[in-house]
Design a protein around this nucleic acid. Structure first.
Length: 413
RNA sequence: GCCAGGGUGGGGUAGUUGGUUAUCCUAGGGGACUGUGGAUCCCCCGACCCGGGUUCGAAUCUCGGCCCUGGCCCCA
């Protein structure tokens, strides 16, 4: 064992079985995105450090992979994709017809302590809806999120909230104090909250905030926080979600990302994941202006792909029949043609490369394949092939076309 | 950054009052054996996470580090 060749902390290797499972989930997500009109984009794996600090502040440098290139540029491996997509929009696509519907599947990097569902390299499947500043746009993002999670079969709870309720309650406070209060709420640290509000001589606010966080219905939220500026739009969004039959509950305590989210926010959680159980997060935001573009309202979300995979547990990979082409030395050339015929028919066909005897080839095939197609001296003379079903053990000598048809009529292992 | 539990061939394991060549299963390669060898038998391959300390001698005791699993914190 060579210690120099270990993989870096928080990264993973994926064997073929895992990759097949991951790709199958990914394909489901892609298919849902496609049906809703979201087209895939791709941005660089690393960007100017500034792109991320502009959005989220210098504090996040601690949690990023930051490095300097040979030209002395400060760069960072992307910790998320939204900022890059909006940069791309500003750079390349700000005159594209609105709304813009984009999606991405990308690996991201964060320098954090690995634990269940948290890795230093992880994948996100996300969508961004740019340029539609309306209730139907907000509703579409939530509906699409629910559709995607349903499509991959993960069991989840969807929470929808709106930042204006909390902003309403906190409007009298300075931004710094707001941030402090938000931190208390985020941790559900109501004792610390009470102390902070006592210092501000606003003990009543604590009660209202606590009620709001606990509130699970829309009327109640309006009663606690008063009428928010976006009331009409949020009402409309909610009525659209209800009409579409989306299953969700309200949570007006969703506080993360107050920095850049502007209105509706939503999150989804899986029950069986332990501490890192959030599998989706999103909301409406405005970033284009920050990156030098015209103001553009956006709404988007990202799915924590690795957490979804963990939550799904053992998922079946796509089943496909595997055909082992077995031959003797005199049949080898013809075996190549037979293999080609199976491949042309769309099947996965593998030939012997170890120059083993027929028996050993059958042994090997029994572990790795569903069918063995044998081309030896007898088959070469008759012009037929012998096909053996490796599960049932039955075999027969038939024409090549019949053998191909036979594979098609049976399932895989 | 903090806490707990771990780390023996590719996978799973036995082995600690310190003492032969580190056990077994499995996987992989080869042979017996040039048409079913998917069986049987035999052979091969291959490990004590890294480094320091104690000792005549360390997988075992000790210190530090690395990594894994889970939790805390954080979560754009």
């Amino acid at each position: 064992m060579n210690r120099m060749l270990q993989k870096p902390r928080g990264t993973r290797d994926f064997l073929p079985e895992e990759m097949e499972a991951r790709r199958s989930v990914e394909a489901n997500l892609r298919e849902v995105a496609r049906r809703w009109g979201y087209r895939e984009v791709c941005t660089p794996e690393f960007e100017d450090l500034e792109l991320f600090t502009m959005r989220s502040g210098a504090g996040i440098i601690e949690e990023m992979y930051v490095f300097e290139d040979k030209g002395g540029r400060k760069l960072a491996l992307r910790p998320e994709v939204t900022a890059a997509v909006i940069r791309m929009y500003v750079n390349e696509a700000k005159v594209a017809p609105k709304p813009i519907r984009w999606c991405y599947f990308a690996d991201c990097f964060r320098y954090e302590r690995p634990q269940k569902g948290r890795y230093r390299q992880f994948w996100q499947f996300g969508v961004e809806l740019i340029g539609a500043d309306t209730a139907p746009a907000d509703a579409e993002a939530v509906m699409l999120a629910a559709d995607m999670l349903d499509a991959i079969g993960v069991s989840y709870e969807l929470k929808v909230g709106h930042l204006s309720f909390m902003k309403n309650l906190l409007s009298g406070l300075s931004p710094g104090v707001q941030r402090k209060v938000m931190a208390h709420l985020d941790k559900k640290d109501f004792e610390g909250l009470a102390v902070t509000l006592e210092e501000l001589k606003k003990p009543d606010l604590g009660t209202a905030l606590k009620d709001l966080v606990a509130c699970r219905d829309l009327d109640g939220a309006f009663a606690i926080a008063g009428n928010i500026p976006d009331k009409e739009r949020f009402d409309q969004t909610i009525s659209l979600l209800d009409a579409a039959g989306v299953k969700y509950s309200f949570n007006f305590g969703i506080a993360r990302g107050l920095d850049y989210y502007t209105g509706m926010v939503f999150e989804a959680f899986a029950a069986n994941l332990g501490a890192e159980n959030q599998i989706l997060g999103g909301g409406t935001y405005r970033l284009a202006q920050l990156f030098g573009g015209d103001d553009a309202a956006s709404c988007g979300f990202a799915i924590g792909f690795d957490r979804v995979i963990v939550s799904l547990g053992d998922i079946g990979r796509r089943k496909e029949p595997v055909v082992a082409i077995i031959c003797t030395e005199e049949g080898r050339r013809r075996a190549l043609a037979v293999a080609r015929a199976f491949r042309d028919a769309g099947y996965r066909a593998e030939t012997d490369l170890m120059e083993r005897g027929i028996g050993a080839q059958v042994t090997h095939a029994s572990k790795t394949a569903d069918f063995a197609v044998i081309i030896g001296k007898r088959e070469s003379e008759s012009g037929e092939v012998t096909i053996k079903n490796l599960q049932s053990g039955e075999q027969k000598t038939v024409t090549l076309d019949a053998a191909i048809a036979g594979v098609g009529s049976h399932g895989a292992r």
